[in-house]
């Protein structure tokens, strides 16, 4: 078939292969893009001590552009501390932290404010401002920047549509359920389309369907928006969803989730497992499941 179509008959138009050329060009451009080789987040031998207890012990890892890094680990192993360090909410005792290749370790609060604009953070319980409505919460960043109100409203509605919560726009945080609070938290974090997003146990204490919705949002960000993220969790179903499914837009223009298999293998989702502030595993979910470490197996199976 291929040979037939490529035969050039005299007098006929040459075959139009420009589209594939363009596609190849854009693919190569992406592969050759040196910018993409710089990790979105990098930890180099970071140590953090709280009252004589080492919360992080020589922690090193990278999150590449467009990649989701799932950080697994029991309570108190330093997961939340790790993401607070990325935002500069805490400072390490030693080691280096780089965001987009920029060393932020010794940045002052003023310099950090600039870096934080690139990063969206979703807190454990949503951390919504109680005194502000859902609209004002999501609009917080834009109001602070002095953006005109009509633009603010458009952006807030767009973000609330993304998390399926537009009807709740005028509610106060106290009127929302746990899952809704998290979703408002996600909408608020995504204002300004940050390229790096941190999830701090976003599904803890939620029912399975709501937890699934939140994982779907994370997958949409990863696969459709090219967002790099750290997803801190200790729930196994989160790991299953994020490492085996991906978001695509179907012909009808709807976002659907497909399972990896024959056709495609997910390479933009890696797992990092921590214990007592140290990395005990780093790699893909397949190798994690095969690991013979008894702690990892106990963690995965629950016994």
């Amino acid at each position: 078939m291929m040979a037939e179509t490529s035969v050039h008959r005299p007098g006929a138009q040459p075959p139009d292969n420009r589209v594939s050329e363009r596609a190849a060009e854009s693919t190569f451009r992406e592969v050759d893009d040196t910018e993409r080789a710089i990790p979105a987040i990098e930890f180099r031998e970071v140590t953090m001590v709280f009252d004589d207890r080492k919360v992080l012990d020589n922690l090193s890892f990278k999150v590449m552009k467009g990649e989701t890094k799932i950080i697994l680990g029991g309570s108190g192993c330093g997961k939340s501390t790790t993401i607070k360090l990325v935002l500069g909410l805490l400072k390490p005792d030693s080691g280096k932290i780089l965001v987009d290749g920029e060393d932020i370790t010794n940045y002052s609060e003023v310099e950090m404010m600039r870096v934080r604009k690139k990063i969206g953070m979703i807190f454990q319980e949503g951390a919504l401002f109680d005194s502000l409505s859902v609209y004002e919460n999501v609009a917080f960043k834009l109001h602070e920047q002095g953006v005109p109100e009509d633009q603010v409203e458009n952006e807030v509605r767009r973000m609330l549509r993304f998390v399926n919560l537009e009807p709740a726009i005028d509610k106060m945080p106290a009127e929302l359920s746990g899952g809704m609070r998290r979703r408002v938290g996600i909408a608020r974090a995504l204002v300004g389309d940050p390229k790096i997003v941190m999830f701090d146990e976003p599904t803890a204490g939620l029912d399975p369907p709501t937890a699934r919705t939140i994982c779907e949002l994370a997958m949409k960000l990863r696969d459709l928006e090219d967002v790099s993220s750290i997803f801190v969790t200790h729930e196994m179903n989160n790991l299953d969803y994020l490492t085996s499914e991906y978001a695509v837009v179907n012909e009808a223009g709807e976002v659907v989730f497909e399972t990896e298999g024959e056709k495609l293998c997910l390479i933009n989702c890696k797992v990092l497992m921590m214990r007592d502030g140290q990395v005990i595993f780093s790699g893909t979910d397949e190798t994690l499941r095969k690991a013979d470490d008894t702690y990892i197996q106990k963690f995965l199976r629950g016994h």
Partner: peptide, 18 residues
């Protein structure tokens, strides 16, 4: 104090406000 314990202060800093 309640803003600190419910991480609202951290959230405010994360959103770029001092």
């Amino acid at each position: 104090g309640s803003m600190v314990v419910s991480e609202q202060i951290d959230a405010m800093r994360a959103l770029g406000t001092d």
